[in-house]
């Protein structure tokens, strides 16, 4: 994943992303509260179209909540969301959401193939028959994440990384323009991380937009074009080169990240 080609591709895309005007998703004044403490407070965000954006922040910063509230999975106290400049309700077919792996019961009695078919629900509807082309789409999506051989496996028999790839395959089946992933690299093996990032970069090269909640500061510059730094409030937003600085990082993480660790990231110190 550190091949020169990918780096060049990422650089090119970063330049392109900087010039893009349309927002894939625009969030205004998002406030969410679980109980008394706000999880997010009046957050504005613009996820650029055709770019890969990382949402970064410490535990409890509201990263996953931002995605869930924007998609209506958790209720919000206030906030407006538009997707490709249209309301969410009319843009559902353009969105694919990949939840945290731990959010579902992997003991559920179903097979890998059937999980991917769930991504085709909006095409199939209540009683539409699963036709050969649907099966083919599902198998192609499994193939793209390197899981075609596992189609008939019960999902509980997969490793964490394999489960994550199945979720990614389901989102590919949705054929969306905006992919929202909640911690896609959490607890996965190195091979899976490489496979996922390759698929995401491929999506970006097709002009799709990708937003991922991300934990590993060390890989941000390699994987993503843009960042949103979040800690209940928005700290910074923009291209990695200008928004992901030692200053914004320490602002986001407060005292939780030693300056020595920030130095290891090899970032420019903005005066």
């Amino acid at each position: 994943m550190t091949t020169p080609e990918l780096r060049i591709a990422a650089d090119n895309a970063a330049k392109m992303a900087a010039s893009t005007q349309v927002s894939a998703m625009k969030i205004r004044g998002m406030t969410v509260s679980y109980g008394e403490k706000p999880a997010l407070f009046s957050v504005d965000a613009d996820f650029a179209s055709g770019a890969m954006t990382a949402i970064i922040g410490p535990n409890g910063a509201g990263k996953s909540t931002l995605l869930k509230a924007a998609l209506g999975i958790v209720p919000r106290l206030s906030g407006e969301v538009s997707v490709f400049d249209r309301p969410l309700s009319v843009s559902r077919d353009r969105i694919a959401y990949v939840p945290q792996r731990a959010s579902v019961d992997w003991d559920f009695p179903t097979r890998v193939f059937d999980v991917v078919l769930m991504g085709l629900y909006r095409q199939l509807g209540l009683l539409g028959r699963v036709k050969a082309r649907h099966r083919q789409t599902a198998l192609e999506c499994l193939d793209r994440v390197g899981m075609a051989d596992f189609a008939d496996r019960q999902i509980g028999q997969l490793s964490g990384g394999q489960q994550q790839r199945v979720f990614l395959a389901r989102s590919l089946a949705q054929g969306a323009d905006l992919y929202l992933l909640d911690e896609p690299f959490a607890g996965v093996d190195a091979a899976t991380e490489a496979a996922i990032i390759a698929v995401l970069k491929e999506l970006k090269n097709q002009g799709k937009s990708v937003v991922a909640v991300h934990h590993d500061l060390a890989t941000v510059t390699r994987y993503f074009d843009r960042v949103l730094l979040l800690n209940v409030n928005k700290v910074a937003e923009g291209p990695v080169a200008s928004a992901f600085t030692s200053e914004t990082i320490s602002q986001t993480y407060g005292g939780r990240l030693a300056s020595a660790q920030i130095d290891q990231l090899g970032l420019l110190v903005v005066p």
Binding site: K68, L71, G72, I73, S89, R92, I95, A96, Y97, P99, S103, V104, D105, F108, T110, V115, M118, Y121, R122, R170, Q174
Partner: peptide, 10 residues
């Protein structure tokens, strides 16, 4: 199986 995903597809 997946309530969050189900909500996002409407």
């Amino acid at each position: 199986f997946d309530e969050g995903f189900a909500r996002t597809i409407g």
